[in-house]
Amino acid sequence: MKPDSIILFDRLYLGSLVLGALNFIIGWSAISEKLASSPEFAATGFGSGFIIASFVIGMIINLVIWYFISARASKVAKWILVAFFALGLVSILRNLDNPLGPQGLSLGVTFVLTILQGVAIYMLFRPDAAAWFNGKPPVDPGTFS
């Protein structure tokens, strides 16, 4: 049985993935326009297929990490997620002035996603989640009443 913190992690993390997918789909036209208007990006040989493939691979990686955290109580997956989150924070800060980075509503959604994922990761460090990662079954609160 999963502790409440892991259930909340599931909801927040999966919700952030769904919101991220919607943000990608809704912002696709803006991304396409940026790619078309950026000759330096076109010169690298990466096109819209690369962007879509990167998004799909990223989603698959996120779902695999979620599975190992949520279903397998993997400490390794938890720390991989923490490392990816930290790298994502650095990337967001570095891309704030990048003309190819998210802007406007997409940037706002990116901040919301980051907050959702940060809260989700926080749930992994609460006492009931820590006990679960250590293989200890959660204590039923009804035991003490």
Rank of each mutant, 00 (worst) to 15 (best):
N23K: 12
K34C: 09
I80D: 06
W132M: 03
F55G: 07
Y122E: 02
S16M: 09
A120V: 10
P3Q: 14
L116Q: 02
D10P: 01
V139T: 07
L22R: 03
V82K: 03
A131I: 01
S32Q: 15
L107K: 02
D128V: 13
P99A: 01
F144R: 08
V18H: 06
L35G: 05
K75L: 12
T143R: 15
I6W: 10
P3R: 03
K75A: 11
D97V: 12
D128A: 06
D140L: 10
F9D: 00
G15W: 10
I121M: 10
D4W: 13
G101Q: 02
F68A: 05
Q117F: 04
A86Y: 05
V119C: 10
P127N: 11
Q117S: 13
I52N: 04
L100E: 03
G104A: 11
G142E: 14
K75Q: 07
A83W: 08
L87Y: 04
T44L: 07
L96V: 12
F144E: 05
Q117Y: 10
I69M: 02
S16P: 01
L105H: 06
E33P: 01
M59F: 13
N62L: 00
I31T: 11
V56L: 11
Y122Q: 01
G45M: 13
V139A: 09
L19N: 05
W66L: 01
I92M: 09
A73G: 09
V109Q: 10
V76E: 05
P137E: 09
M123F: 14
A36P: 12
R94E: 12
S5T: 05
L96C: 01
G135S: 07
Q103P: 00
V82P: 05
N98G: 04
I121K: 05
S37R: 12
I51M: 07
Y67D: 13
L17T: 07
N134T: 06
N62E: 01
S106H: 15
S54E: 03
T110L: 15
L17N: 12
F55Y: 13
L81G: 11
S48E: 15
F55E: 04
I92K: 09
F46K: 00
V109D: 00
G49T: 04
R72P: 04
K136M: 11
P138C: 09
S106L: 15
M1F: 15
D10L: 02
T44S: 02
D10R: 09
L87A: 12
F68N: 08
A83S: 11
W66H: 12
D4C: 03
A42L: 14
L89P: 02
R72W: 10
I92R: 14
G15Q: 05
T143G: 05
K78T: 10
A30V: 15
S5I: 11
L107A: 03
F46M: 13
F125M: 11
I60D: 08
L81P: 02
A130K: 15
V64P: 06
G15I: 03
R72C: 00
L105K: 09
F133V: 01
V112C: 00
S145I: 00
R126A: 06
F85Q: 05
S37F: 14
S16Q: 09
A36H: 01
T143K: 15
A83C: 09
T143W: 15
A43D: 08
